[in-house]
Design a protein around this nucleic acid. Structure first.
Lengths: 335, 335
DNA sequence: GTGAAAGCGCTAACAG
DNA sequence: CTGTTAGCGCTTTCAC
């Protein structure tokens, strides 16, 4: 591979001049600069980023450390991260710890060895996680928040999302709202339940059927829960589901039991997972946690910290959005 | 950040000795080695990978260049790639070109600048793609195959997968098989159709309903196609679907039309996308293209090329597997 | 305007 | 066994 010396020789200048020409620094005659660039092009010269990083102390590389094997939630986040970083000419080193703390520590060492400018930590679980350690470079936690208050963590607002969902149901005239959601041990399930309950309470209402139905994040559980609701005999005209998969299961069972959605029962999901929400019959109104935006914001903060030095610690909650489809509106259902 | 010099000073030895101790090379007294490692630990020393790479010419880094924004198909592939590379202490630089050739060229330059040891190219489309160019480092194409026969491309065998599916239908006693699949312009759709047709022909049969039904890779199309089949009046007892999403749509429509699956009609999908296959009623028998294995094999080949020098060009087709669930077996359906 | 030289942190010969 | 030294490819003063 050609080096600055090769380019210099070909252009008939010194290596210092080549450096200046390539980086547009210093005082160079336009003609000289052109000659250098020409020589570089002819040789297929790609400046060695390692040598540059060694000298300047910046590698224009950040590490993305995830606990989850490329799952449905981390993907949009990584997309957002890449989006924000790519614009700044920064490359991402991807490390998947598979939820193994040992492997994670190994990756942290690797990233430090590679002198990344900063690290983004993400993962499947919403529950606070132990920090990756005191590092000499800025770190941002996204989706998975750090237990330590001296770290910067960014995630979305489950409670606000749930309130959005319930308020939308109330606005469409529903007053008998049920809640079918995931396992109680999951923080996000508890937060959503709390937000939903609060929104109902503000309207002087409470969940029907004696409260939330806790279960799994699956369609199978959604179908089962809907059967439970129907069998209970208690009337209901709205269901807020903890996930789109659950909502889809509920929708299927309701339809097969002869309950029209949204005519008899309005349905709101959570996640805005396109595959689920759009294939649902009818297409699903749901809460979008804006995961890509989360990633973008996290990367933006990291960049600022890299440029500026220190990071401002704290927990940032980004708002969710309501995405209205036909499971709560009067539009005619699809095929 | 501490350097070898700091460690050397603290341990009371020279930098050369530190290097030997850290890398387990050369002849060192065990006691000296221990003293150095101790000093390194105390200082929190992480050897600078850039400096090492600059000197040795190897960075223990490979680039993963994908055209797709972390989609459903590339994810398992990247997982497999990471799997094989992580074992070799190799880090991956992730670059998402978003199907933009300009962006792709930019990333190629970036990767060359960073002196990656090799590149894995992947992407959503199965149709052959233009190569990323003549590079001084080994490149492996996976899933997305290169147009150039001098490149190494690895993908799965669509035809063999389709044959597997149809032969399984035949084995369960079905003789009137329909085929519902994606757009005809997609190579994978055409290959699967060809494989399925060949398998039927080997048994002296052909598709019912005058041939394959070409459409979209969606549930909506699956539902629509099932209606078309039912309305045609032509009897059928098996459907091979080009994707799990299509199969799920077909399953829903058949059930609602009173046709039992697998009692009246057996159903086979393609992809083994767990979310779809498992939530389907009944759970779906399908073809698994073993994408993670694809990634592992690709990374393995790349590693060999990195160690050994040149890459052996060619096109490798890995076999698909049949995953049997209840849409073709007699077991009782779930909820 | 351009060139010469120092040095980023590390490894690998070669001395001792 | 351990220390010394010469670079890897680049940027950056500082002379000219």
């Amino acid at each position: 591979m050609p080096t600055v010396a090769d380019v210099a020789a070909r252009a008939g200048v010194s290596v210092g001049t080549v450096s200046k020409a390539m980086n547009g620094r210093g005082q160079l005659r336009a003609q000289t600069r052109e000659r250098v660039l020409e020589a570089a092009r002819e040789l297929g010269f790609h400046p060695n980023a390692l040598a540059r990083g060694l000298l300047t102390g910046r590698t224009y590389t950040v590490g993305v450390l995830t606990t989850e094997s490329f799952g449905r939630f981390t993907i949009p986040i990584m997309l957002g991260v890449e989006d924000a970083l790519g614009a700044g000419e920064i490359s991402t080193l991807l490390c998947d710890s598979r939820d193994d703390p040992l492997r994670e520590q190994h990756y942290v060492r690797t990233l430090l060895s590679r002198r990344v400018d900063g690290i983004v930590v993400t993962g499947r679980r919403r529950d606070p996680r132990p920090p990756i350690g005191e590092l000499p470079i800025p770190v941002v936690y996204v989706f998975a928040v750090s237990e330590s208050p001296s770290d910067l963590s960014i995630t979305y607002d489950d409670e606000q999302g749930a309130e959005l969902a319930v308020n939308h149901l109330l606005l469409t005239g529903r007053t008998r709202v049920a809640h079918v959601t995931g396992p109680r041990r999951h923080l996000s399930a508890r937060l959503r339940e709390g937000g939903a309950r609060a929104a109902l309470a503000a309207a002087g209402l409470d969940f029907v059927a004696g409260g939330a139905l806790w279960g799994e994040w699956s369609e199978v559980w959604g179908r089962e829960a809907a059967h439970i609701l129907l069998r209970s005999g208690e009337p209901f005209d709205g269901v807020f589901c903890g996930s789109d998969q659950i909502a889809r299961g509920v929708a299927d069972t309701l339809r097969e039991a002869g309950r029209a959605v949204p005519g008899d029962v309005a349905l709101v999901g959570f996640d805005n997972w396109d595959v689920m929400a759009e294939a649902c019959r009818p297409p699903l109104t749901t809460i979008d946690p804006n995961l890509s935006e989360l990633g973008r914001v996290a990367a933006g903060r990291l960049l600022r910290a890299i440029e500026g030095g220190a990071i401002e610690p704290g927990r940032i909650l980004l708002p969710c959005d309501l995405v209205i489809r036909q499971s709560t509106s009067a539009a005619p259902a699809a095929v």
